[in-house]
């Protein structure tokens, strides 16, 4: 579904953000990407739907080469959902309008069709009563659930999560993770950048550990948590699991 082959990326001419990264996410697989801050995990996930350009290597999404200049990026992106660290709901639109906008303008659905879909998804994330509020009136956890619903409204073939719980207060993290766990159990293909190792333990198939722009470890979940092979991954795990 998602293939990342020997991808390198530089910011400017000197700083190399990604170094020869290779991995893939199969259909129905849930892959968690973790690592210390500045390790390039967010950059990597943003490269998958070409929000960030890459200089070397290839990324292939459902058989389509993302970094091909001839690729119709808007069309490709419409098929992949993305959830951001800071939610990025559109603050000038009501919750329900947030969910309808791209359905109507990008997929060309009728307003009624989009509304029906939006209502269904809001119900699913437990926020139907807030449909006519503005994003600023909702808590962080609620906003992130709306953001997930907004991405799902496009009927994506895969979902990308870029630190979806990092900007949330602790008591709101679980409500977002619950939605993600449900999604994973339904068989959604997911690539998730997160520090939530509990989530990784529960639903991930594989865990990727990144450090300084490199994929240091790419292992099955049980192998990763059982006996990480690299020192750096062991150190990282001991730091975040010690409390």
């Amino acid at each position: 579904m998602i293939e990342i082959n020997h991808v390198s990326k530089w910011y400017g001419s000197t700083f190399q953000a990604l170094k020869d990264c290779t991995t893939k996410v199969a259909k129905g697989e849930v892959v968690v990407v973790c690592g210390p801050s500045g390790s390039g995990k967010s950059t990597l996930i943003k490269c998958v739907n070409a929000l960030e350009p890459i200089q070397e290597g290839d990324i292939i999404l459902d058989g389509i080469k993302v970094n091909d200049p001839k690729t119709d990026l808007p069309k490709l992106r419409a098929r992949v959902g993305m959830v951001f660290q800071h939610f990025e709901l559109f603050p000038h639109l009501k919750i329900i309008e947030n969910l309808c906008l791209a359905q109507e303008k990008v997929l060309g659905r009728s307003h009624d069709e989009a509304m029906a879909k939006a209502a269904k998804l809001l119900d699913r994330v437990g926020l139907k009563v807030h449909a006519n509020k503005y994003p600023a009136e909702l808590s962080g956890g609620q906003q992130q659930r709306v953001a997930i619903a907004r991405a799902l409204a496009m009927d994506p073939i895969a979902m990308l999560f870029d630190e979806p719980t990092s900007a949330l207060d602790p008591e709101m993290i679980s409500e977002v993770l619950d939605v993600m766990v449900d999604l994973a159990r339904e068989g959604m293909t997911m690539m998730v950048v997160t520090h939530e190792m509990g989530f990784a333990r529960k639903v991930a198939h594989r865990v990727i550990f990144m450090d300084q722009g490199e994929i240091v470890e790419d292992a099955l979940k049980d192998d990763f948590f059982g006996k990480p092979r690299s020192d750096r991954a062991q150190k990282f795990l001991s730091k975040i699991l010690s409390h």
Partner: peptide, 12 residues
Amino acid sequence: GQPAAANALGMT
């Protein structure tokens, strides 16, 4: 993040 979110939804 706003244009990024819009792009990610497939908007031109």
